[in-house]
């Protein structure tokens, strides 16, 4: 009977393939942070005191002050196994960084372009731009969105799970909006454009 139970249990092995949401989000966070830093150009300084300690810095500091983490902190930090650095992804990232510095950042600052709720960018209001620039901003947005489409797929493939593309895009949606500067436009869940 015991043997039978053992065989029965052995026959019912369930393999759970899970989407490593936390790891992907953490990787997306780093990627988005890098892109939004731009291509060597300095990010515009925040003009309020909150810039000195943002939420992330404070959490990091608290984490380091906890004696327990002196022993186990590093081990956890390295458990994430999501890669965002294949040659294709790196090339896309460099393009996006350079585009951010050259044009996208300016359009975001002017609220001409905003982050959509599906991980892309869109022209929100180009009415203050000269006509030629309104055409240019369309090209910048189209270029950025082509890169982002390729990025989400390449990240899924680089991690051996092409079927994760949609979830990876969702992880990026969160990060684009979370790391947007205050004053930038983004689309909320119901599709309305709001200022951060």
């Amino acid at each position: 009977m015991t043997l039978f139970s053992f065989v029965w249990i052995s026959a019912c092995v369930t393999i759970n393939v899970y989407f490593p949401a936390a790891e992907v989000e953490s990787a997306a966070k780093e990627f988005v942070g890098d892109v939004l830093k731009g291509d060597g150009s300095e990010q515009p300084a925040k003009d309020d005191q909150s810039a000195l300690f943002d939420g992330h810095d404070i959490r990091l500091m608290a984490h380091q002050l906890n004696p327990l983490n002196w022993f186990i902190g590093q081990a956890h930090a390295q458990s994430a196994d999501i890669t965002l650095s294949s040659p294709a992804i790196n090339a896309l990232k460099e393009k996006m960084k350079s585009r951010f510095s050259l044009s996208l950042q300016g359009y975001l600052n002017q609220n001409v372009v905003g982050f959509t709720n599906d991980g892309f960018v869109e022209v929100v209001d180009a009415s203050n731009l000269p006509l030629r620039d309104r055409q240019t901003v369309k090209a910048v947005v189209a270029d950025e969105n082509r890169d982002r489409t390729a990025l989400y797929r390449e990240v899924a493939i680089a991690n051996d799970h092409p079927e994760w593309e949609e979830q990876i895009r969702q992880a990026f949606v969160k990060q684009w909006i979370a790391q947007a500067n205050s004053g930038w436009m983004y689309q909320n869940q119901s599709g309305q454009w709001v200022k951060k």
Binding site: S86, P87, A88, A91, E154, I157, A158
Partner: peptide
Amino acid sequence: LRITNWKTDR
């Protein structure tokens, strides 16, 4: 074999 951007990726 996966060649992306005309470079070997995987």
